[in-house]
Design a binder for these strands. Structure first.
Lengths: 109, 109
DNA sequence: TGGCTATATAACCAACTAGATATCTGATTG
DNA sequence: CAATCAGATATCTAGTTGGTTATATAGCCA
C-alpha cells in the first residue's frame, strides 16, 4: 500500500467515533475485545469489525494470550497523519520552517 | 454540531486523496473551482461536491469575485484534528516512556 | 465429556459515497 | 441580443460502510 492510500485508510479509520473511543481507551493500555466492548451498545461482531479496520489502518496490533487476543496501540502510528496535517497548516500559515514546533505543540498539550 | 461529530466529519473529509490534494493546493493560496479542477481527471460536479464536503467540514471557505467563487483554507482548521491525534499519541508515548524508564531501571539495579 | 467464554466469520441490509451525465443560473463578452 | 464561461444542482448508479443475527472455532472448567 502506497503512502497516499495508507493515509486515506488511516484518516478513514479515524473518522468513526466508536473507533476513536477505542483508540483513546487503548492509549491507556492494552485491552481485550470484551473489555473494549463494554462502553458501547453495539454487538461483539461490530467491535471486531472496528478492530479489523483499525488494524488494517496500521493503528493497532493484536497479541495472543491463550484465550484472549489483547489489542494495543502501535507506537507512533498516528504521527504520519499528524505530520500531514502539520505540513498543510504550516504551509498555510507561512511557517514551513516551524513544522517541528507545530508537532511539538500537539504532543505537549 | 457537537465536537465529536465535527471531528468525525473532519477526519472523513481528510480520508479522500482528491480532497487532500485540494487542501494541499489551497495551502499555497486561494483558487477557483476551475483551477482546482485541472490536476484531476474527474468531472466539474465531482470537484464541486468535494468542495462542499470540505466546506461542511469547516476546512475551507468560499469567497465571491464577480464570476468566480474562490476557495481558501480556513485558518487553523486542521488544529483540532491534529490536537486529537497529539493527545492520543502523547498519552500512549507517555506510557511507553514510563515503560522504557521502568525497563532501564530494572536492568540498572 | 459437555458446557461456558472469547473471539472470528458469514450473510444480509440500509445508509452513505464518489463518480457520472444532464441541466440550470448568472456573469462576461462579441 | 446570443454565445460562452464559471459554477451549482438534480438524478442515477456501483461500491463501501456500520450495523445486525447466526454460526464457527478454540481454550477453559466441572
Amino acid at each position: 500500500m502506497d503512502m497516499e492510500s495508507a493515509l486515506s485508510t488511516r484518516f478513514a479509520a479515524l473518522a468513526d467515533p466508536t473507533r476513536r473511543a477505542i483508540l483513546a481507551r487503548l492509549a491507556e493500555g492494552e485491552a481485550t475485545v470484551s473489555e473494549l466492548r463494554k462502553p458501547f451498545p453495539i454487538s461483539q461482531p461490530a467491535i471486531s469489525k472496528h478492530l479489523r479496520v483499525l488494524e488494517q489502518a496500521g493503528l493497532i496490533e493484536t497479541g495472543q494470550d491463550r484465550q484472549t487476543r489483547p489489542r494495543r496501540l502501535k507506537a507512533g502510528a498516528l504521527r504520519d497523519a499528524a505530520a500531514w496535517l502539520g505540513r498543510i497548516d504550516a504551509l498555510w500559515s507561512g511557517r514551513l520552517d516551524r513544522l517541528d514546533e507545530f508537532l511539538t505543540r500537539q504532543t505537549e498539550e
